[in-house]
């Protein structure tokens, strides 16, 4: 089951990413429990300490809270907070890389906008 993890980025980050994706997709609504450290470790054949690090990252960002003796739960408003965080990240990394690539390809701003618009229309962005 390690197959879903890769060696392109640190494992604990991938674990954090995985849980974040789950929260965003609505798999883990507010105040529901997320998989425990041990469950994650067992599922991905990784060291529980690494899994814990991933979970703690979300705790530090206020996305998860701990209920003693029971486990980790999604904080209310986590999905919204995540969306916000990812939007900021989107601008900083993906947009930047996207525009740079366009620059490398020698596109003008106008050409770039038309490409984006075409795709946005196809995806039916409101």
């Amino acid at each position: 089951m390690k197959g879903t993890l890769n060696d392109q980025s640190l494992i604990y980050r991938q674990i954090a990413q995985l849980l974040e994706d789950g929260i965003l997709r609505g798999e883990y609504p507010a105040d529901t429990q997320v998989p425990s450290t041990n469950e994650l470790a067992r599922a991905f054949n990784i060291n529980p300490a690494t899994a814990a690090k991933g979970i703690n990252r979300l705790v530090d960002e206020g996305l998860l809270y701990k209920r003693r003796g029971i486990g980790m739960f999604v904080a209310p408003g986590a999905a919204e907070a995540l969306r916000q965080k990812r939007r900021e990240n989107f601008a900083k990394t993906q947009v930047k890389a996207f525009v740079r690539e366009a620059k490398r390809l020698g596109l003008t701003q106008q050409e770039l906008y038309s490409l984006v618009k075409a795709q946005a229309q196809e995806e039916q962005l409101p």
């Binding site: 390690k2 041990n38 470790a41 067992r42 054949n45 990784i46 060291n47 529980p48």
Partner: peptide, 13 residues
Amino acid sequence: RERFYRILLDEYQ
């Protein structure tokens, strides 16, 4: 090998 890692982690936990 995968089996070994799994067994090891189980024992560790």
